[in-house]
Design a protein around this nucleic acid. Sequence first.
DNA 1: CAGCTGACCATAC
DNA 2: AGTATGGCCAGCT
Length: 121
Amino acid sequence: MIEMDDVFFERVYEQVRRVPAGSVCTYGTIAELAGYPKASREVGFAMSRVQRGWNLPCHRIVNAKGTLAPTYAFGGHRVQRQLLEEEGVTFVDDETIDMARHRWPPLDEPSGPEQLALPLG
DNA sequence: CAGCTGACCATAC
DNA sequence: AGTATGGCCAGCT
């Protein structure tokens, strides 16, 4: 049984809880938000220790490409995909999330050329 | 203390 | 396209 007293786990889970429904977040981003910018792998490890009663939306955490967790995590990609689609997450592939639409937190970099070229009206 | 592992990430070929 | 490799770091043996 994993103790929630572990600082690393506690901080990681705290960030996972912040991910809103309908959005997803990557292991690397969770690691950054938790204060461990390079510990993305450990975030994945922390996810594997998550249990049902913890109320953690671990299905909203995916890798940088947007592909879903391995089969054993949720009993198959179908299950995780079902959970995400229920929340409004769209997919570009059977097991790949549309990261551009659903990545959280949103990237509002001013260097986005499309935002400067928005047609009026 | 030392070595291995992994729900990762980026790069190179 | 896919496959290999190096870096990363907390947890486990």
